[in-house]
Simulated scan of single mutants.
Amino acid sequence: MNGTALRVCLPDQKLLDAMEPSAEVEFLVWDLTGPAPADGFDLLVPPYMGRPDALAALDGVTVGLVQSQSIGYDGVADVLPSGCVFANAADVHETSTAELALGIMIASQRGIPEFVRNQSSGAWGAGQRPSLADRRVLLVGYGGVGKAIEARLLPFETHVTRMASRERDDERGRIYGVDSLYEQLPLHEIVVVTVPLSEATRGLVDARFLAAMPDGALLVNVARGPVADTEALLRETSSGRLRAALDVTDPEPLPADHPLWTVSGVLITPHVGGASSAMFPRMVRLIKKQISLMLAGEKPVNVVLG
């Protein structure tokens, strides 16, 4: 970009400190607030969990590649300046998100939130809880996160059904298409949603979807909040017919007085699926890989737009 070196813009000092100094790379720090420190960048990394409209700061700035720190990129196409290439952070968050999905699944099945509440009052509260073992689990969405969840579910002796946008087969057998959704929902005691947010998936988990789930079933949402209809979810869980474990909500953050917080059988975590100690070193490796590819004149990985 500057004729002598690759110009790379990072959002904070922590990422900068993790980079290796190189005569071939000029590193700058900018979090997309205030004026840009240069008129162009070969590679720019926005802040983690920033709103897509923050990319409007790139108007008038020449950028070769925008490397996101998130997997999802809903809303980015609407604000990404013309000519920019956008890559997501595939392979950075899948493991951590899968860990959390399994954690909230097990917590919901085995009654751990109730045990935590009982501990404050010294109540013993013993009793039998539903297992994860032998449960029929439907994965709605079979991208990187769905596959990572499947890999962790199988050792728990669950029966996993995979569902993607289209039907196909792989070495493990059938992957159902989403057109089979309402045939499969009544057959599964746990439904895990990992689809990306798009016009096709917005409101996918609606009243009809939830009504098709069997009594006592558990919905796990680690996708995006607007994939689910909050009012429909509130009705089904408030009645006690369904349970839910949610890492994402709509709206988000969920207001402190929202009734979903106090529904028995609903476990909420604050959109922290990827927020573990595994994220930073994996993000550093991805940025370094992109830099190496660009220096070699090769195409970047994980490109989803542009």
Score class of each variant (00 low, 15 high):
8 V>Q: 09
9 C>M: 12
10 L>T: 01
15 L>T: 06
17 D>H: 03
23 A>Y: 00
38 A>H: 12
47 P>C: 07
49 M>N: 13
51 R>I: 06
52 P>K: 09
57 A>S: 14
57 A>G: 03
62 T>A: 15
76 V>R: 06
79 V>L: 05
83 G>N: 12
86 F>Q: 09
93 H>N: 13
97 T>A: 11
101 A>R: 08
101 A>I: 10
104 I>G: 02
105 M>T: 15
107 A>K: 09
109 Q>P: 01
114 E>N: 11
114 E>V: 13
116 V>W: 12
117 R>L: 08
121 S>N: 07
121 S>W: 05
122 G>D: 06
131 S>P: 02
131 S>L: 15
132 L>H: 04
134 D>N: 14
135 R>E: 15
136 R>G: 01
140 V>A: 11
141 G>S: 12
142 Y>V: 02
151 A>R: 15
152 R>N: 09
157 E>Y: 12
162 R>P: 02
164 A>H: 08
165 S>M: 05
167 E>H: 06
168 R>G: 01
171 E>H: 10
174 R>N: 07
177 G>H: 03
178 V>P: 00
179 D>N: 10
182 Y>H: 14
185 L>G: 08
186 P>I: 11
189 E>W: 02
191 V>A: 08
191 V>N: 05
194 T>H: 13
194 T>I: 07
206 D>C: 14
215 D>I: 04
217 A>K: 07
217 A>E: 11
220 V>E: 09
221 N>H: 10
225 G>D: 03
227 V>Y: 05
229 D>T: 01
230 T>L: 08
231 E>T: 11
232 A>W: 08
236 E>S: 14
241 R>Y: 10
245 A>C: 11
246 L>C: 11
249 T>K: 10
251 P>L: 08
252 E>D: 10
257 D>C: 10
258 H>R: 07
260 L>K: 10
261 W>T: 02
262 T>V: 05
268 I>K: 08
269 T>Y: 02
273 G>A: 15
280 F>V: 06
281 P>I: 06
282 R>I: 02
282 R>M: 01
283 M>T: 10
285 R>W: 03
290 Q>L: 02
293 L>D: 04
294 M>Y: 04
297 G>H: 06
306 G>M: 11
